[in-house]
Write a protein that binds this DNA or RNA. Structure first.
Lengths: 352, 352
DNA sequence: CATCTTGTTGCATACATATGCAATACCAGG
DNA sequence: CCTGGTATTGCATATGTATGCAACAAGATG
């Protein structure tokens, strides 16, 4: 077996001729210890290769400085971007990131039950639904939960989302302004709050403006499903002239199908619009019009929430972050975009 | 302040009328305890909402069941795929994944110094170089290191890589078989072992076959740098008719530039070949010929190594995994691919 | 010089669990 | 009934660090 022997504070204490308490204080900023004994201890520690055991420290503090992060489908570049930013932001905040897989389905994985008992400072769920039993379990384990890109009715959990209502309305207005006649919607995962909000707002706005109800297909926030959905739409005799996909991943699948399987000139013969504004959307190969979800801000808000919840687990709140409609070549251009820009930001970025 | 009160084994013991030891045993598979007292304890534990504190358990075992994973640039889909598989595989193995950012530069981040002292079962570095000081530090902390997609001369660390020599040679042979006259190479990060091996093998094979030395530009495994590098190549009077990019991310950038900025018909007027065979390479928008690195196998090997190293930290080894040349539309096709397929696998997959 | 203050230090204990060892109970065989 | 063995259980201690408390020293103030 592997019996590792570690250097402990006692070893350092013996080497430096002090007590173990002194060693502890030497590594605690602001502790009551004289500068020169601290220096002596740090020297000895360095020589022995000592570092405080964070597990033992957490055991005493009752706080691990670890944040659990559950992520479902990393196929979506939006979450890759988020993970990238989140890992950096947590690191800067002195927090560790414990990653665990959470099937993209409605609820999280079994392993979360174990993870909860690491005395996590917080649990972040990236686009993963929170079942009521899990919510209850987190409450019992006294682990504050932050939903990222999801909301829930559960009152005790916090959330950070983009403004799906305004986003979907803005896209609807954009498509109407482009004089599109047959609009379609490719939906995300049924039961996800993002899809529910986007779909409801999109349909409601179109109805309110007197437009006919759009076609609708399920894309499950998945490339293969969105590819199939697009094929179904484009095979119809009354082929749509505009498709709003509930996220960019599906929109890119739709572009691929429209362009390479049906030979359509995307942006002229058919408009395709996505949601998230992932980095790939700006690539000339796609030039995808999309409503942005600002990952940096959403991550910043998430970390802010975590720091608050760490000290006061009851200070839950729901944060909504503004986005911007990024107009690019995949949707028919309009003379004066600001004409319908009454509620949100609109930008026509240069290609990278 | 936030003073969380947790249910401990003592509380359960009191409730169930047994000793704390019994509670511990009730949660230890195979421990010496009668079935009915175990049942009684589990009932009481469930009622109180008790779960063993993993931090305390780790403190005793001297083993945390946590694997540290350092990742640099998640912009490369190959690492996204890897992370996806790795998080799942570690979870299945009962191991936790502590993620930390490691700047894509040659060495890892400062926070790693702290992380090392979580008594990690292992440290995995995804395409991150291992500085000799860090290697030494890991040795002192008695944390076994597994390099993923990197090698090092350090004898005490393990590694899992694809076969860069064969891959680069196969690509060189493929381009020569396609009668390409002016071949170029866009290099990855200088100093990375992947680039070093691919570049050396590519250049060596071409020279050995009597072909002129290829043009060479730096792409740093980065989209922006590769975009600029491609522009430099395509602006030359003696524009190359084939480019081998040291990974797919750069190859896709090269395709974007060639097609959208220079109006070239990729696959006919110019061949572009990548490395990694990321999922995106199969998209019709790119249809990128690429040498695969089988992430599933590489991850499986990584987890296998971790399990071995957990019990015997000295059992380090270097694993090389076979790949396959995936022939797609971005490179000029050849009548008989197997003519030059003397050393490796070659496939002509259908588009997804 | 006595007293008080301030700054350091060590002692003892707590955090939550795992486990070697001894004690106990129980059952079968003689 | 006694003995030996087995199965269960509790006691005591260990893991490595943080911290309240008391002790102590040194300097300041009267």
């Amino acid at each position: 077996m592997n019996d590792r022997i570690f250097v402990t504070a006692h070893d350092v204490a013996r080497a430096a001729g002090v007590s173990q308490s002194a060693v502890s204080r030497a590594f605690t900023p602001g502790a009551s210890i004289s500068p020169d004994t601290r220096a002596r201890i740090l020297t000895a520690a360095d020589q022995l290769g000592y570092r405080p055991n964070l597990l033992a420290r957490s055991l005493i503090n009752g706080r691990s400085n670890i944040v659990g992060v559950g992520v479902g489908n990393l196929a979506n570049p939006f979450f890759v971007e988020t993970m990238q930013l989140l890992s950096r932001a947590l690191d800067d905040a002195g927090l560790r990131l414990l990653l665990f897989p959470a099937d993209s389905g409605a609820t999280a994985e079994p392993s979360i039950h174990e993870i909860l008992h690491y005395r996590l400072d917080a649990l972040v769920l990236l686009s993963v639904g929170l079942s009521s039993t899990l919510a209850e379990e987190c409450r019992r384990a006294q682990v504050p939960v932050v939903l990222y890109n999801r909301t829930t009715l559960d009152d005790a959990t916090s959330s950070v989302i983009g403004d799906n209502q305004i986003g979907a309305r803005t896209i609807a207005a954009h498509l109407l302004a482009g004089r599109h006649q047959r609009i379609a919607y490719i939906a995300g995962t049924a039961g996800s709050s993002t899809n529910a909000q986007r779909e409801a707002a999109f349909f409601a706005y179109l109805a309110q403006q007197g437009a006919p109800a759009p076609l609708r297909e399920d894309g499950h926030y998945d490339i293969a499903a969105a590819t199939a959905a697009t094929r179904r739409l484009l095979t119809r005799p009354d082929r749509p002239d505009a498709i709003f996909c509930a996220n960019d991943l599906m929109a890119i699948a739709a572009i691929n199908v429209a362009r390479h399987e049906y030979g359509l000139d995307v942006g002229r013969e058919i408009s395709i619009v996505g949601y998230d504004d992932v980095p790939m959307a700006a690539w000339p190969a796609f030039s995808l019009t999309s409503y942005s979800q600002p990952a940096e801000q959403m991550v910043a808000q998430t970390v802010r929430l975590i720091r608050i919840l760490r000290d006061d687990p009851d200070a839950h709140q729901d944060v909504i972050v503004d986005g911007t409609l990024m107009l690019r070549g995949s949707s028919r251009s309009v003379a004066n975009p600001s004409a319908y820009a009454t509620t949100t930001n609109i930008a026509t970025p240069r290609p990278d």
